[in-house]
Simulated scan of single mutants.
Amino acid sequence: MKDVVTLVTGGSRGIGRGIALALLAEGATVHVTGRTRFEADANVPERTGSLEGLEHEAATLPGRLFVHRCDHGRDADTERVAEEIRAGAKLDILVNNAWPGYENMVEDGHFTWPQPFWEQPDWRWDAMIGTALRGAFMMSRAVAPLMISARRGLIVNISFWAAQLYEGNAIYGVAKAAADKMAADFAHELSPHNVAAAALYPGLVRTEAVLRNADYFDMSNSESPQFIGHVIAGLWRDPKLMSKTGRVLVAAELAREYGIADVGGYRPIPLTAADFVRD
């Protein structure tokens, strides 16, 4: 991957950080966006997770890291980063991962995530649709011409089964369904240019937030944050990549196809829709 240039949005913590570290470990040049520049400014419960922290963690990896302070809720921020990428005249992989939708799940002592749609706070729609979804569209639109001119590229929207099944929050379902549809329609328009687009589903990922609440999860089949990054690298190397464009892809399923194992050699079991059906 030493000649591959990638952009991962929302990489100061969570899945995005793991994807960036995995791609750096494989030798890629990785651009990462994030709202939190310095560790002292982290405001999540762990009081950690920043572009500065990512830089420290990436220091010994073979790839080259470039960080960009960016709030994808502001189109001007997204465009500024895209302009910096375009200045390099090359982008192979875009991973649309930025996702503020899990913030503030508890408000005034109440866990608002599972409330019916008519009781959902307005900010949650703005975060999932106005920031995450719009940010993915705006960044994709800004960098697609680079891929088209090179006649090769890959856009990955990080999504989840909530796109297809009820997962406890109507706005969440709408956002993920739109991410899948966006990837499918991007693929339709990009295919003549030999550029692929897909929605990629992780399993249960051991992010900082999940580990903080590990007592509430069955962690036996969980995935490291880096796992999905190695899967994206495998997808890029797939000589039949264009046969997968426009599709919903399950990371653990691709890992089996490509012979990719997670940390410690564990091979996560791919989840299916049946795993989310509740009685």
Rank of each mutant, 00 (worst) to 15 (best):
V263F: 06
A170E: 07
M1V: 14
R74P: 00
G168P: 01
F160D: 14
H56C: 01
H31V: 09
H110M: 11
D180V: 15
D122E: 13
M139G: 06
G53M: 04
A261M: 04
E52S: 12
L190Y: 00
D215R: 09
N104D: 12
G153Q: 07
G168R: 12
Y266W: 04
V4M: 10
V231N: 02
T112K: 11
Y258T: 10
G18A: 11
K2P: 03
Y201K: 01
P270H: 14
M182T: 07
E189T: 13
A40N: 06
V32L: 04
L204W: 01
V263P: 01
L133A: 11
A187K: 01
I148Q: 15
L154I: 08
N221K: 07
E103C: 08
A132H: 05
A198E: 02
H193A: 14
L65S: 10
G88W: 02
A252K: 03
E84P: 00
E57G: 05
T131D: 06
N194C: 10
L24D: 00
N157I: 10
D122K: 13
A170R: 03
E223K: 03
R237Y: 01
E83S: 14
D215T: 11
A150N: 07
A58L: 03
L54S: 05
A40W: 00
K240N: 09
L7R: 06
R13I: 05
S140T: 15
S12F: 04
